[in-house]
Structure formats: structure tokens, C-alpha cells
Design a binder for these strands. Structure first.
Lengths: 108, 108
DNA sequence: TTGACACATTCCGATATGGGAATATAATGC
DNA sequence: GCATTATATTCCCATATCGGAATGTGTCAA
């Protein structure tokens, strides 16, 4: 079986670099698809497909404005990811402390 | 072109659910492969392959101990992910504040 | 209504994915 | 050395991925 499909969850959706850039671009302001196409320098269908994935997992919201589709990042969708990674914080702090101590003992 | 390969970065490596579980299991203590096999209830080659991916992106460390390979999560490898998602925190706070305000105005 | 935008979807092809089965490698104990 | 244990790798397969080209759909303007 291949990997759980991209549409299935946030972790998969953000695994693709272009999609991370899109989320960054849409975090602070709404933008139409055409603007993303210009900013990213990739083909329009490609952008639309990435937006589709992001929409399916709830990472962006859409709104029609005339002929344009205005997209915007739904930042709260990224919270699970932040929380999950954050659970490891105590461990990397440990590690950093150990590394620091080792460095100090070498200097002595 | 298919997605950037799984081995290429942390975001891809953690896109697979089993691998996230493995990272959780190896966060607090070193474990041999066989133990992961028992705990996860999946075939040994499968576990070895996931560990290989995690090792390639630096998310776990290994050490040989007799016949066993002792694996452990290298938590600091998850920091980039935490930082990246954390950059969106100010946006989801905004959103939550707006939602709260709307709820309050309805109650009035 | 017709044309022109702005997007979305579909179809295609090359490649990657993860699981299972079989096999290879490495360390231990006899 | 030889069997055994622990793990890694390889091969195969069904399926998913992304990009590109072509096509569909929806909105506006004349």
C-alpha cells in the first residue's frame, strides 16, 4: 500500500514544498489564484491542484469574488502540527543541555 | 514529477503515520527494532524500512548493542517543523479572537 | 448571446510509495 | 565452523503523486 493519501491529513498536505510556500503567501492576506501563479512562477493548473489539496484538509478557505477565487490560509489547521512537534520540545532541550555540558567539560 | 522524495526532508518523513508513532516510542528511550515490531504489530521489514527513512533525514540515531540495533529519536530534528508551524501562531490567534468576539456579540 | 477572462478538472506519463515475501548480513553461542 | 537470532535489503505489486496539456465551468462585459 502506498502512503496515506495526501488529502487525508495535514501532515501529508504540508509535505509538499510548494504547498508550504502557498500557505505562507496566504497567511497574512487573501489572494486570487492568478496572483499565486505569478508569485510562484508555476502553471495555473498546478496551483489549482495544490489549493484543492489544501482545501480538502481545511488548511485554506475560499471565497468567490467576481471571477476570482480568493484564498486564505486557515492557520488554525496547522495547530495540530505545532502541538505534535512541540511535544518533543522537552527532549530536544535535554539533548541541547547535554551537548552544552559536554562542550563545557571540554573547555575545562 | 512526483512529490519530493520521502528521504529528502523532515516534512516528508513525518507524513507517514507509522513513522510518527515510531518517533513517539523512541522519544523517551532507546529501543531495539524487535520491540518496535511487537509494539506496533507490523512486520519487521516494514519497521526497518521506516527506521531507514527516519535515519536518512536525521530523525533517529542508532547504536549497535550486540545483535540489537538500538534506535532513539533525535528530537532536535523536529525543531524545524515546530518552528515552521509556530510562525502561523499569530494568525490562528487572530482567528480565534475574531471567533470569540463574534460569539460574544451573539450572546449580547 | 457571445466572447473573454479566471479557475477547476481530467487525462496522461514518469516516478515514488509502502507492504509482503524472500533473501542477505552481522553478531552470538555452541 | 555452524545454527540461531536480530536486523537490513531487495524484489515485486498495487496505488498515489506531481507536472503538463487539454478541456470544462462559471462570471462578467458588451
Amino acid at each position: 500500500m502506498p502512503r496515506a493519501t495526501t488529502r487525508s491529513d495535514v501532515f501529508n498536505a504540508v509535505a509538499e514544498p510548494q504547498r508550504r510556500v502557498i500557505l505562507e503567501l496566504l497567511a497574512s492576506e487573501e489572494r486570487p489564484v492568478g496572483e499565486l501563479v505569478r508569485l510562484l512562477g508555476v502553471a495555473q493548473p498546478s496551483v489549482s491542484k495544490h489549493l484543492r489539496v489544501l482545501r480538502d484538509v481545511g488548511l485554506v478557505d475560499v471565497r468567490r469574488h467576481g471571477r476570482n477565487m480568493m484564498y486564505r490560509t486557515n492557520a488554525s489547521g496547522l495547530q495540530p502540527l505545532h502541538v505534535w512537534a512541540g511535544a518533543f520540545e522537552r527532549y530536544w532541550r535535554h539533548q541541547l543541555r547535554r551537548i552544552k555540558q559536554r562542550a563545557e567539560s571540554i573547555n575545562r
